[in-house]
């Protein structure tokens, strides 16, 4: 069990980073896991091809909450292509049936590598990926809406 519930996951599920709401996000996505009713909302603002502001809210199991919390720490303020690339690598890890990816990818994932064991439990794959699905969806929206000038949104924790 310790393999699944790594300390970093337990820590992030209890003390979460990035929870809040943006006043005028460029993109927003609500995702729900119908099997357990878990849900999350991810909001993003983009500026100069960077994810300038990021906030999330939601409820769910330790895996889904820790995944959102770590996602915030990894992508907030990052260039869009890096955030998207990180999402792809994380998805690859979670679908890898509990096996690590190559060392280069594991290094890119940093603390997200703690989720390696989740891939062993097919029922938990969606938990780990729920927030990342929301991020991908919110970014698509943001890129659509930010062709014109927008105001810089502010975070309200």
């Amino acid at each position: 069990m310790q393999q699944l519930y790594q300390q970093v996951i337990l820590d992030h599920s209890k003390s979460r980073s990035g929870e809040g709401e943006l006043s005028s996000p460029h993109g927003e996505s609500f995702q729900v896991n119908p099997t357990c009713g878990d849900e999350c909302t991810v909001q993003v603002a983009v500026e100069d091809n960077r994810l300038s502001h990021f906030a999330w809210s939601g409820r769910g199991c330790s895996i889904s909450q820790a995944s959102l919390s770590l996602m915030y720490e990894m992508v907030d303020g990052e260039p869009l292509d890096r955030a998207e690339h990180l999402g792809e690598t994380f998805r690859e890890l979670i679908h890898n049936r509990g096996q690590e990816l190559n060392p280069e990818k594991m290094e890119q994932l940093e603390d997200l590598s703690a989720f390696t064991g989740v891939g062993r439990y097919s029922a938990r794959v969606k938990c780990a990926l729920l927030g990342w699905m929301a991020l991908r969806d919110a970014l698509v929206q943001a890129q659509r809406t930010t062709s014109g000038p927008g105001q810089a949104p502010e975070t309200q924790a």
Binding site: C36, G37, D38, G60, C61, S62, I63, R124
Partner: peptide, 22 residues
């Protein structure tokens, strides 16, 4: 403070099958 999915996972690790969710 413990999500049902996590409760079910720890029980499953001990061979105990329960339902979690709504």
């Amino acid at each position: 403070g413990v999500h049902p999915h996590d409760v079910g996972q720890i029980l499953d690790d001990q061979g105990i099958a329960v339902r979690v969710g709504h």
